[in-house]
């Protein structure tokens, strides 16, 4: 018990001191995960809309695969990206392994299915409600998809948030493709894993607190925004 209290005190000290090592780790974490969410949104939202509105052979299979990939194990994604980016791999010439870029690629692959699957569900529900009206007004399917992407924007933001939560919290993928190099690819989760195994609990705990606070703050902001949007737009 006293270990926990001591560690908490030390952690609080680290946070309030604004120690540069800690700040660097937090900033890199945010940079990697927010980049991954942005890229995954660019890929996943159109894919979700296409699966919700489009009718083409193989659509059902694709939906099942993407739903299944929501639960991809991060270490497996990390391993795949590692194999692709390693010196002998097909993309080895770019020298991206053990860089933040590799971490962004791995997290993007990890969360694109999450964002696509949630977006598909959200847009499919909206499509069921509106497709007759949109067709009656003469909207082609691609136009209807764009309209619904905009119309469901507040719900889709929740999907992006789920992606961000997953990216910020995972350790397996970034550990494998980033290598947890101090000052280069060390993020919150990999630091927590390393420091815990070394026995330096205060730093691990401080980062854990920051991580939880960040995720809570983001979710609070999103919740308030949704409430506002519901009152404003119905």
């Amino acid at each position: 018990m006293s270990t926990l209290v001591d560690s908490l005190q030390a952690a609080a000290g680290l946070i309030t001191d604004g120690e540069s090592q800690l700040a660097g780790i937090v900033i890199l974490s945010l940079r990697v995960s927010l980049s991954a969410v942005s890229l995954a949104a660019l890929l996943g939202l159109p894919l979700g809309a296409l699966l919700a509105v489009g009718r083409f052979p193989g659509r059902q299979t694709l939906i099942i695969v993407i739903n299944g990939f929501m639960g991809l194990p991060p270490v497996v994604v990390g391993l795949l990206v590692y194999l692709l980016l390693s010196r002998a791999g097909p993309l080895g010439t770019f020298g991206l392994l053990f860089t933040p870029t590799a971490m962004i690629v791995a997290q993007t692959l990890l969360i694109t299915p999450i964002i696509a699957a949630l977006a598909r569900q959200i847009i499919a529900d909206a499509w069921a409600e509106t497709h007759e009206q949109l067709r009656s007004l003469g909207a082609a399917p691609w136009r209807a998809a764009l309209t619904l992407l905009w119309d469901t924007r507040f719900s889709l933001f929740t999907a992006l948030l789920a992606g961000f939560g997953r990216a910020a919290a995972e350790v397996g993928a970034v550990m494998i493709v980033g290598g947890n190099i101090d000052g280069v690819t060390r993020v919150m989760t990999t630091t927590i894993a390393l420091e815990t195994s070394k026995g330096d609990l205060p730093l691990a705990l401080a980062l854990g607190l920051v991580l939880i606070t960040l995720v809570l703050a983001l979710n609070t902001a999103a919740h308030l925004m949704r409430q506002w949007a519901m009152r404003r737009y119905g």
């Binding site: 509106t130 009206q133 009656s136 119309d151 737009y233 119905g234």
Partner: peptide, 13 residues
């Protein structure tokens, strides 16, 4: 031609 439905479908705008 145009159609009006039983339940009005309004976009969030």
């Amino acid at each position: 031609q145009a159609m009006v439905f039983q339940r009005p479908i309004m976009l969030r705008t």
